[in-house]
Each structure stands twice: as structure tokens, then as C-alpha cells.
Design a protein around this nucleic acid. Structure first.
Length: 223
DNA sequence: GACCAGGCACATC
DNA sequence: GATGTGCATGGT
């Protein structure tokens, strides 16, 4: 069993299932993926609540809305001018491609890399956002690398400091079976653990990943 | 008042 | 290619 999978087991044992990503529809999850950029989830929830209030949790409504109204709705999530534009860009993409993607999902003929590239062409969608949409909105097997995943990889799997997104993603995917449920849960667990048992520079004594073999150096250093 | 939070695009060197 | 900067709110 890989160290990476062992870490998952430790986290799952401690925290159990995380039920990510919160959202009542694929589009709502996608909305959250854009709004959460460099923002904590609480503020995203405030913005999504605003969108729900005005019945704007669908791409058609987003595109039909005046910019100012959309900006006001997403304001609590910060960067509201940028994010309202990005949301419209993603809504346009959604109206063009989401049906085709869903059809391929039904036929089991989806090429994850093709759709990843397609999302990355949207202005406002980078690698993390694209992967979050693919994994959490469409249940496609791609591993999400965010600040917390990166920190955990450096801290517990001895990945080099200046690792590219691609390198980190490959590392996780090469050391795990290609399982959507696992990718989904693992990312959620890393975030949960980071919030509860880690700080920016080290993990705290309660971090379950301290039990990983080969973590003696880390334990000594940060106790 | 400073710092942080589930990034990204663009300018500059 | 690497680095810096703007975008902005709400909670601690």
C-alpha cells in the first residue's frame, strides 16, 4: 500500500466521510468552485444564498442578469467584480458544452483531459477550479491540488518546495487508484485536517498524519 | 489593524 | 520562466 493511500486511511479513520462538495446541483457546485477562489467557504455560502434568493442558481439566469445585480449577489465572496465576470464566462461554457459532457458521461466515453483543456480555456478558470468542476460537478477522476493539498504533500510526502501543480497532481494520481469517490474524499479530508490540525508552517500534535511511517523527522521538529 | 481564506490573469523583468 | 500585483469581502 502506498504512503499516500495510508495517509487517506488515517484521515478517514479520524474524520469519516466529508460529503463534499456542498451544492444541490452540478451548476451550483460549479458556482461554488468559482466563488471560492482565494476565499473561505463561509463567504461563498453567503454569496450562494444571495443567488438562491434571486433564483439565479442556473447559467441562463446568470447570463441574463445585469452585471451590477450579479456583482451585488456575489459580493460577500470577495473580488466580486472579477468573480461575476468569471461566473458569466463559465455560464457561457456551460450552455455550450454541459449537455455534450453529460451525454458522454452517460455513454461512458468521457475524455477527462479533453474537458480539462476545454475548461482551462475559460478566462477565470485555472487548474484548481477546472479540476474542482470536473471532480465535484461531473464526477470525473481528476485530483484537485489546492493550498492545503500542496502543504500536505510537502510536509508528509517530502515533495520538493517548488513543485508545479502538474507534478503534485501526477504524484497523487500515480499513488492512488483512479477512483472518483477516493479523490473526492481525500481532497475534502486534507482540507478538514488542515483546518483542524495544521497551521501554515507545521502540523499540530493532533494531526493524524503524524502516524505515517517516515515522519519521525517532522514529529521531532514540530513537537 | 493585521492577517487569512478551498486562485487567477496580467504586467514586468 | 519567475516574480509581483490587483482583485475585495468577512471572520478572528
Amino acid at each position: 500500500m502506498s504512503l499516500v493511500y495510508k495517509a487517506f486511511e488515517l484521515l478517514f479513520e479520524r474524520y469519516g466521510e466529508q460529503y463534499w462538495w456542498p451544492g444541490n446541483s452540478a451548476w451550483e457546485i460549479c458556482t461554488g468552485a468559482v466563488l471560492t477562489q482565494n476565499t473561505n467557504w463561509h463567504n461563498v455560502e453567503l454569496a450562494i444564498r444571495n443567488l438562491r434568493k434571486i433564483d439565479a442558481l442556473c447559467p441562463n439566469r446568470i447570463l441574463a442578469m445585469p452585471d451590477l445585480d450579479l456583482e451585488n449577489a456575489v459580493r460577500p465572496s470577495g473580488f466580486f467584480r472579477v468573480k461575476s465576470k468569471r461566473l458569466k464566462n463559465v455560464a457561457e461554457w456551460w450552455l455550450i458544452y454541459a449537455d455534450k459532457l453529460h451525454e458522454q458521461l452517460r455513454k461512458n466515453t468521457c475524455n477527462v483531459l479533453f474537458w480539462r483543456q476545454s475548461l482551462l480555456r475559460i478566462n477565470g478558470v485555472g487548474e484548481e477550479t477546472a479540476d474542482s468542476i470536473l471532480l465535484y460537478s461531473f464526477n470525473l477522476p481528476t485530483f484537485v491540488i489546492d493550498t492545503y493539498t500542496r502543504r500536505a504533500a510537502l510536509r508528509h510526502f517530502s515533495m520538493p518546495n517548488k513543485c508545479s501543480y502538474e507534478t503534485l497532481q501526477q504524484f497523487f494520481m500515480e499513488n492512488l487508484p483512479p477512483d472518483v469517490r477516493l479523490y473526492n474524499e481525500y481532497h475534502a479530508l486534507l482540507v478538514r485536517n488542515a483546518k483542524e490540525n495544521c497551521c501554515k508552517n507545521s502540523c499540530l500534535p493532533g494531526c493524524p498524519l503524524r502516524e505515517l511511517p517516515g515522519n519521525l523527522r517532522l514529529s521531532k521538529k514540530s513537537v
